[in-house]
Protein backbone atom coordinates (compact mmCIF):
# COMPACT_ATOMS: atom_id res chain seq x y z
CA UNK A 1 0.00 0.00 0.00
CA UNK A 2 2.75 2.42 0.82
CA UNK A 3 4.44 1.51 -2.43
CA UNK A 4 1.23 2.16 -4.28
CA UNK A 5 0.76 5.43 -2.44
CA UNK A 6 4.11 6.64 -3.66
CA UNK A 7 2.95 6.52 -7.26
CA UNK A 8 -0.32 8.35 -6.61
CA UNK A 9 -1.12 11.83 -5.46
CA UNK A 10 -4.08 13.69 -4.15
CA UNK A 11 -3.53 16.51 -6.58
CA UNK A 12 -3.42 14.40 -9.72
CA UNK A 13 -6.74 12.57 -9.81
CA UNK A 14 -7.33 10.08 -12.54
CA UNK A 15 -10.31 10.19 -14.84
CA UNK A 16 -12.04 7.44 -12.90
CA UNK A 17 -11.69 9.43 -9.70
CA UNK A 18 -13.12 12.56 -11.28
CA UNK A 19 -16.07 10.61 -12.65
CA UNK A 20 -16.57 8.94 -9.28
CA UNK A 21 -16.63 12.25 -7.43
CA UNK A 22 -19.02 13.86 -9.92
CA UNK A 23 -21.44 10.94 -9.86
CA UNK A 24 -21.08 10.83 -6.09
CA UNK A 25 -22.10 14.48 -5.77
CA UNK A 26 -25.15 13.84 -7.96
CA UNK A 27 -26.05 10.75 -5.92
CA UNK A 28 -25.71 12.61 -2.66
CA UNK A 29 -27.82 15.49 -3.91
CA UNK A 30 -30.54 13.10 -5.01
CA UNK A 31 -30.40 11.36 -1.64
CA UNK A 32 -30.76 14.70 0.14
CA UNK A 33 -33.74 15.52 -2.05
CA UNK A 34 -35.21 12.13 -1.18
CA UNK A 35 -35.11 12.76 2.54
CA UNK A 36 -36.14 16.42 2.42
CA UNK A 37 -38.69 16.65 -0.39
CA UNK A 38 -42.18 17.52 0.74
CA UNK A 39 -43.83 15.85 -2.22
CA UNK A 40 -43.96 12.15 -1.55
CA UNK A 41 -43.94 10.98 -5.16
CA UNK A 42 -41.03 13.29 -5.94
CA UNK A 43 -39.12 11.72 -3.06
CA UNK A 44 -39.62 8.28 -4.63
CA UNK A 45 -38.47 9.57 -8.00
CA UNK A 46 -35.38 11.18 -6.49
CA UNK A 47 -34.68 7.81 -4.91
CA UNK A 48 -34.48 6.40 -8.44
CA UNK A 49 -31.75 8.92 -9.25
CA UNK A 50 -29.85 8.09 -6.08
CA UNK A 51 -30.00 4.34 -6.66
CA UNK A 52 -29.01 4.75 -10.30
CA UNK A 53 -26.05 6.85 -9.20
CA UNK A 54 -24.96 4.09 -6.85
CA UNK A 55 -25.21 1.66 -9.78
CA UNK A 56 -22.89 3.90 -11.80
CA UNK A 57 -20.47 3.90 -8.86
CA UNK A 58 -20.48 0.11 -8.93
CA UNK A 59 -19.62 0.24 -12.62
CA UNK A 60 -16.75 2.61 -11.89
CA UNK A 61 -15.52 0.16 -9.25
CA UNK A 62 -15.55 -2.59 -11.95
CA UNK A 63 -18.37 -4.50 -10.28
CA UNK A 64 -20.57 -4.61 -13.32
CA UNK A 65 -22.74 -7.59 -12.38
CA UNK A 66 -23.78 -5.92 -9.14
CA UNK A 67 -24.47 -2.73 -11.04
CA UNK A 68 -26.97 -4.48 -13.30
CA UNK A 69 -28.52 -6.32 -10.37
CA UNK A 70 -28.88 -2.96 -8.64
CA UNK A 71 -30.62 -1.47 -11.66
CA UNK A 72 -32.91 -4.48 -12.03
CA UNK A 73 -33.93 -4.98 -8.43
CA UNK A 74 -33.73 -1.55 -6.85
CA UNK A 75 -34.71 0.74 -9.67
CA UNK A 76 -36.91 -1.85 -11.32
CA UNK A 77 -38.83 -3.38 -8.47
CA UNK A 78 -38.22 -1.72 -5.12
CA UNK A 79 -39.04 1.79 -6.30
CA UNK A 80 -42.09 0.50 -8.16
CA UNK A 81 -43.21 -1.21 -4.96
CA UNK A 82 -42.68 2.02 -3.04
CA UNK A 83 -44.73 3.96 -5.59
CA UNK A 84 -47.49 1.35 -5.31
CA UNK A 85 -47.34 1.74 -1.55
CA UNK A 86 -47.60 5.51 -1.83
CA UNK A 87 -50.63 5.21 -4.08
CA UNK A 88 -52.34 2.55 -1.95
CA UNK A 89 -51.98 4.68 1.16
CA UNK A 90 -53.53 7.58 -0.74
CA UNK A 91 -50.50 9.83 -0.55
CA UNK A 92 -51.40 13.38 -1.46
CA UNK A 93 -50.31 14.66 -4.84
CA UNK A 94 -48.53 17.93 -4.27
CA UNK A 95 -46.67 19.21 -1.25
CA UNK A 96 -47.71 17.80 2.08
CA UNK A 97 -46.59 20.05 4.91
CA UNK A 98 -46.47 17.29 7.51
CA UNK A 99 -43.94 15.08 5.78
CA UNK A 100 -41.35 15.87 8.43
CA UNK A 101 -42.03 15.18 12.05
CA UNK A 102 -41.30 17.45 14.97
CA UNK A 103 -37.97 15.93 15.87
CA UNK A 104 -36.33 17.30 12.76
CA UNK A 105 -33.62 19.26 14.51
CA UNK A 106 -32.72 16.35 16.75
CA UNK A 107 -32.46 14.16 13.63
CA UNK A 108 -30.30 16.78 11.94
CA UNK A 109 -28.02 16.93 14.96
CA UNK A 110 -27.66 13.16 15.19
CA UNK A 111 -27.04 12.76 11.46
CA UNK A 112 -24.55 15.63 11.32
CA UNK A 113 -22.64 14.42 14.35
CA UNK A 114 -22.42 10.86 13.07
CA UNK A 115 -21.42 12.08 9.60
CA UNK A 116 -18.64 14.22 11.04
CA UNK A 117 -17.34 11.43 13.26
CA UNK A 118 -17.47 8.77 10.55
CA UNK A 119 -15.90 10.96 7.87
CA UNK A 120 -13.09 11.85 10.22
CA UNK A 121 -12.47 8.22 11.16
CA UNK A 122 -12.66 6.94 7.58
CA UNK A 123 -10.42 9.60 6.10
CA UNK A 124 -7.93 9.16 8.89
CA UNK A 125 -7.91 5.38 8.53
CA UNK A 126 -7.67 5.12 4.74
CA UNK A 127 -5.53 8.14 4.01
CA UNK A 128 -2.86 6.18 2.16
CA UNK A 129 -4.92 3.38 0.66
CA UNK A 130 -5.44 2.97 -3.03
CA UNK A 131 -7.63 0.68 -5.04
CA UNK A 132 -5.92 -0.87 -8.01
CA UNK A 133 -8.52 -0.87 -10.75
CA UNK A 134 -6.18 -1.69 -13.60
CA UNK A 135 -5.82 -5.43 -13.05
CA UNK A 136 -8.31 -8.13 -13.88
CA UNK A 137 -11.96 -7.20 -13.71
CA UNK A 138 -13.27 -7.95 -10.24
CA UNK A 139 -16.97 -8.23 -10.75
CA UNK A 140 -17.85 -9.39 -14.22
CA UNK A 141 -20.74 -11.82 -14.53
CA UNK A 142 -18.34 -14.70 -15.06
CA UNK A 143 -16.29 -14.01 -11.95
CA UNK A 144 -19.33 -13.31 -9.79
CA UNK A 145 -21.18 -16.38 -10.97
CA UNK A 146 -18.20 -18.61 -10.47
CA UNK A 147 -17.56 -17.45 -6.94
CA UNK A 148 -21.26 -17.45 -6.12
CA UNK A 149 -21.86 -21.02 -7.22
CA UNK A 150 -18.57 -22.38 -6.04
CA UNK A 151 -18.14 -20.88 -2.58
CA UNK A 152 -21.51 -19.39 -1.68
CA UNK A 153 -24.00 -22.05 -2.76
CA UNK A 154 -25.46 -22.77 0.68
CA UNK A 155 -26.17 -19.11 1.56
CA UNK A 156 -27.59 -18.66 -1.92
CA UNK A 157 -30.08 -21.49 -1.43
CA UNK A 158 -30.92 -20.31 2.07
CA UNK A 159 -31.61 -16.91 0.54
CA UNK A 160 -34.08 -18.44 -1.89
CA UNK A 161 -35.93 -20.01 1.05
CA UNK A 162 -35.91 -16.62 2.76
CA UNK A 163 -37.41 -14.99 -0.32
CA UNK A 164 -40.12 -17.64 -0.44
CA UNK A 165 -40.89 -17.06 3.24
CA UNK A 166 -41.07 -13.30 2.66
CA UNK A 167 -43.38 -13.82 -0.30
CA UNK A 168 -45.74 -16.04 1.69
CA UNK A 169 -45.61 -13.64 4.61
CA UNK A 170 -46.46 -10.65 2.45
CA UNK A 171 -49.40 -12.53 0.90
CA UNK A 172 -50.71 -13.58 4.31
CA UNK A 173 -50.33 -10.07 5.67
CA UNK A 174 -52.04 -8.33 2.80
CA UNK A 175 -54.83 -10.85 2.22
CA UNK A 176 -58.14 -9.38 3.26
CA UNK A 177 -60.40 -11.38 5.54
CA UNK A 178 -58.16 -14.36 6.27
CA UNK A 179 -59.07 -17.03 8.76
CA UNK A 180 -57.43 -15.52 11.81
CA UNK A 181 -58.64 -12.07 10.89
CA UNK A 182 -62.13 -13.38 10.21
CA UNK A 183 -62.26 -14.90 13.67
CA UNK A 184 -61.25 -11.56 15.13
CA UNK A 185 -63.81 -9.75 13.08
CA UNK A 186 -66.72 -11.88 14.21
CA UNK A 187 -66.33 -10.39 17.67
CA UNK A 188 -65.96 -6.88 16.29
CA UNK A 189 -68.27 -7.00 13.29
CA UNK A 190 -67.28 -5.52 9.98
CA UNK A 191 -64.22 -3.68 11.15
CA UNK A 192 -62.38 -3.65 7.88
CA UNK A 193 -65.35 -3.72 5.56
CA UNK A 194 -66.78 -0.40 6.67
CA UNK A 195 -63.67 1.36 5.64
CA UNK A 196 -63.65 0.01 2.11
Amino acid sequence: MTLAAASHGFLSPTGVEIAFVLVGIATLGAALQTVTSRQLVHAALWLVVALGGVAVEYLLLTAEFIAWVQVLIYVGSVVVLLLFGLMLTKAPIGPSPDADSGNRWAALTVAGASAAALVWVVVDAFRATWIDLDGTVQGSAEVSGRSLFRFWVLPFEALSVLLLAALVGAIVLSRRGGDAKGAAETSAPAAGEERH
Binding site: H8, F10, T14, V16, E17, F20, V21, G24, T27, L28, A31, A50, V54, E57, L60, L61, A115, L118, V119, V122, V123, F126, R127, T129, W130, I131, L133
Partner: peptide, 13 residues
Protein backbone atom coordinates in the same frame (compact mmCIF):
# COMPACT_ATOMS: atom_id res chain seq x y z
CA UNK B 1 -8.64 5.15 -7.08
CA UNK B 2 -8.30 6.43 -3.57
CA UNK B 3 -10.25 4.26 -1.15
CA UNK B 4 -11.45 7.32 0.75
CA UNK B 5 -13.77 8.37 -2.08
CA UNK B 6 -16.18 5.42 -1.92
CA UNK B 7 -15.84 5.22 1.85
CA UNK B 8 -16.73 8.89 2.37
CA UNK B 9 -19.58 8.67 -0.12
CA UNK B 10 -20.94 5.64 1.73
CA UNK B 11 -20.70 7.48 5.05
CA UNK B 12 -22.56 10.50 3.68
CA UNK B 13 -25.27 8.35 2.10
Amino acid sequence: MHLAYPAVLAVLL
